[in-house]
């Protein structure tokens, strides 16, 4: 890719403008890009690699380790906790509700390991907000309200 001139490079470069150019900023850098763009594209990771001076294979190696960076282009992830405590309290119903309302929407329903909300099971994590003691209805509403611009 002709990095320095590509649109993606410009976007990433602006996002990382005030970050020190060092390896230790890789995770914060990936977060900034993922939050702004909704996911980490190959080109965006190339740009991060160039800007921070970290080999692109290592940028990919780090990014691909983390499940919260598994977003895909044009599909916003929503998380339903299906771990033991939430499963005991009806997580499957939440997942079904989320999947139903995600049909024909740019949304990816993902199962999450323990979200640390077991005192409020079942829980979901949608649009950056935790839903506690969630009902299928609430999940449905939250999924339809997810921003995907």
């Amino acid at each position: 890719m002709d990095t320095q001139n590509s649109a993606v490079y410009q976007v990433v470069s602006a996002l990382l403008e005030d970050l020190p150019r060092e390896r230790a900023q890789l995770l914060p850098a990936l977060w900034r890009v993922a939050e702004s763009e909704g996911y980490l594209s190959q080109d965006a990771m190339e740009a991060v690699s160039k800007i921070l001076g970290v080999p692109s294979a290592e940028v990919f190696g780090v990014a691909s380790f983390y499940s919260l960076f598994e977003g895909e282009e044009g599909r916003v992830p929503v998380y339903i906790c299906t771990d033991v405590m939430c499963a005991l309290q009806g997580a499957q119903n939440l997942k079904d509700a989320a999947e139903k309302s995600a049909v024909n929407r740019p949304i990816a329903v993902k199962e999450s390991a323990c979200l640390g909300q077991c005192d409020h099971a079942p829980a979901a994590w949608i649009g950056g907000k935790v839903l506690r003691r969630a009902s299928p209805e609430e999940v449905k509403t939250a999924v339809t309200e997810v921003r995907h611009d």
Partner: peptide
């Protein structure tokens, strides 16, 4: 980085 199953004390 509290992520242990059933653990939420640090969050609270």
């Amino acid at each position: 980085d509290e992520s242990e199953l059933g653990t939420f004390k640090d969050r609270v």
